[in-house]
Design a protein around this nucleic acid. Structure first.
Lengths: 134, 134
DNA sequence: TTGCTCCTCACGTCACGTGAGGTGGC
DNA sequence: TTGCTCCTCACGTCACGTGAGGTGGC
């Protein structure tokens, strides 16, 4: 899928370290189809390239927004389509998907802000309660 | 455990409605011991009082902070001890627990702020990408 | 050959969701 | 008696964690 230019390939341990995920998590993302399968050594060791790292970083960015695996897959697919597809129709569709996700992300931000306010209130309440004389 | 003054008791459906949780979730909280078991009708229907509602509201407040069930149980226990126990030692211990949770809650707030910033960045990036001409 | 890294099952976990099949109570 | 609400299993789900037992590659 990628260019044949020799890029330095990484084993799963290096990759996991670099993006801050567990080995299991990296394998899981491949298993559910959100991370494109890496090449393998003849012995079966996974070898990842720069595009895999990029995918994983995107996934990691989406996690704090509570996006599901299915949603991550959709976004990564749209992004890949924008990078590689030459069909105008496909590119337009991909753009639309990205727009949809931008809106969704904005909604999640609103949710997070609400959560934060509620959390701050809770923290204050508990602190007061601990210090109340009674 | 509570006073014998006649309080208007509620069935689980009313309770779930009022606090915004599912029936299953309310039963689950009882099952894992974070919600004190309600009284029952002779036919087995659960009847909840005001203290149950208060507990559930506290639980609901803790959820956006990603507290585990175990942590919720601990905080509710400390809070109950502060309300009912007359032992000075127990009250002091309960206060300490609450202090600990106040600090924990503050940490979670910091995490949420970080998440929010990361989320905002992501939303901006996606929006830009969708509009980029290329 | 010794380590260290990797491999694939496969079962466990947390916080519930979702029926199935059956009863209570106004 | 009819509905509507409730009951208890019990299996499913999502995103992984956690061994078990076995091999690759410098």
């Amino acid at each position: 899928v990628t260019s044949a230019t020799k890029e330095h390939l990484l084993q799963i341990g290096e990759v996991a370290d670099r993006v801050g995920l567990s080995l299991r998590t990296v394998r899981y993302y491949e298993e559910v189809g959100v991370l494109t399968p890496p090449t393998r050594t003849s012995g079966g060791f996974r070898l990842y390239g720069d595009d895999h790292i990029a995918q994983l970083l995107t996934i990691k960015q989406m996690k704090p927004l509570d996006f599901s695996i299915e949603e991550m897959r959709e976004l990564l697919e749209a992004r890949a389509a924008l990078e590689t597809s030459t069909s105008a129709r496909r590119r337009a569709a991909a753009r639309e998907t990205l727009e949809r996700f931008a809106a969704l992300a904005a909604d999640r931000c609103t949710d997070l802000r609400k959560r934060l306010r509620s959390a701050e209130t809770f923290a204050r309440e508990i602190s007061k309660e601990a210090q109340a004389p009674d």
